[in-house]
Amino acid sequence: MRPLFFTGTGTDIGKTHVLCEIIRAWRASGRSMRVLKPVISGFDPSALNETDTIRLMRANEDALTGEGVQAVSPWRFRAPLSPDLAARKERRELALDKIVSWCLDHISRDMPTVIEGAGGVMSPIASDGLNLDLIRELDAHPVLVAGSYLGTISHTLTALRVLDGRCSVILNDHPESDTPIAETARTISRFAPRADIRVFDPAAPEALLDLFERAAETLLD
């Protein structure tokens, strides 16, 4: 079954928050999914509840055990750096083929699998590969989360160009942004007509489930 891959135009744009809200809405509708975040940096064992891995596990109602964490995020690094640099700091190996192999072994045949990347789509996720390379190796359906800051149009269109334009895009509005999110969405749509552009509404995350359902149906075909 083809997985969904959540990535972003960069860091700190709310990718994990948006994904967690969609997972909760999906679970509330009575459906299950598998959630994986194979690589995470900035992982502090003394502050587990603040890590993206635990946030995703809580949203998906996974068992919060050591084995559960390992089953979601087998490569965990302390330094808040790109994974390749964080791994090098700990003198650990982080090769793309290992990540690909692990993901393929853990993609569910019975339910949708969502994989969250680390950083932006063009960020290194291994010593020899980017998030983009992992998406392609897994033949995953990309879901690109973007912000609403000044410059997000350029960042989003650049990401869509490397993703060949065929992608789901979720714009995550920031309350302090001066850029109208609806205008941003229209502009991106004009220059990327093959992409499905959506705006995330924190009060109604279930509004995005039709996007998720269509992607999941594509995986099942």
Score class of each variant (00 low, 15 high):
1 M>V: 11
1 M>P: 11
2 R>D: 09
3 P>N: 07
4 L>W: 05
13 I>M: 03
21 E>Q: 15
23 I>P: 00
26 W>N: 04
26 W>S: 01
31 R>D: 12
33 M>N: 07
35 V>R: 00
37 K>I: 07
39 V>N: 00
45 P>A: 11
48 L>W: 02
49 N>W: 15
54 I>S: 03
55 R>Y: 10
57 M>I: 10
57 M>G: 06
57 M>V: 08
65 T>Q: 10
67 E>G: 15
69 V>P: 00
70 Q>W: 14
79 A>I: 05
80 P>F: 06
81 L>E: 06
81 L>G: 04
82 S>G: 09
85 L>D: 02
86 A>F: 02
88 R>P: 02
91 R>E: 11
93 E>T: 14
96 L>S: 08
97 D>R: 13
99 I>N: 04
103 C>E: 03
106 H>I: 09
107 I>V: 15
110 D>I: 12
110 D>Y: 11
111 M>I: 14
112 P>Y: 03
119 G>P: 00
122 M>T: 12
125 I>Y: 06
125 I>M: 06
133 D>S: 14
134 L>Y: 04
134 L>E: 02
135 I>W: 02
135 I>M: 09
139 D>Y: 13
142 P>A: 07
143 V>Y: 01
143 V>I: 15
148 S>Q: 02
149 Y>Q: 12
149 Y>H: 14
149 Y>M: 15
150 L>V: 15
151 G>L: 13
151 G>M: 08
152 T>A: 11
152 T>D: 05
157 L>K: 06
165 G>W: 07
166 R>G: 12
170 I>N: 00
171 L>T: 01
172 N>T: 07
173 D>H: 09
173 D>K: 04
180 P>M: 07
186 R>A: 14
187 T>C: 12
189 S>W: 03
193 P>S: 14
197 I>M: 04
198 R>E: 14
200 F>E: 01
202 P>L: 05
202 P>R: 11
204 A>D: 14
205 P>A: 07
205 P>V: 03
211 L>G: 02
212 F>Y: 13
214 R>T: 15
216 A>R: 04
218 T>V: 08
220 L>Q: 15
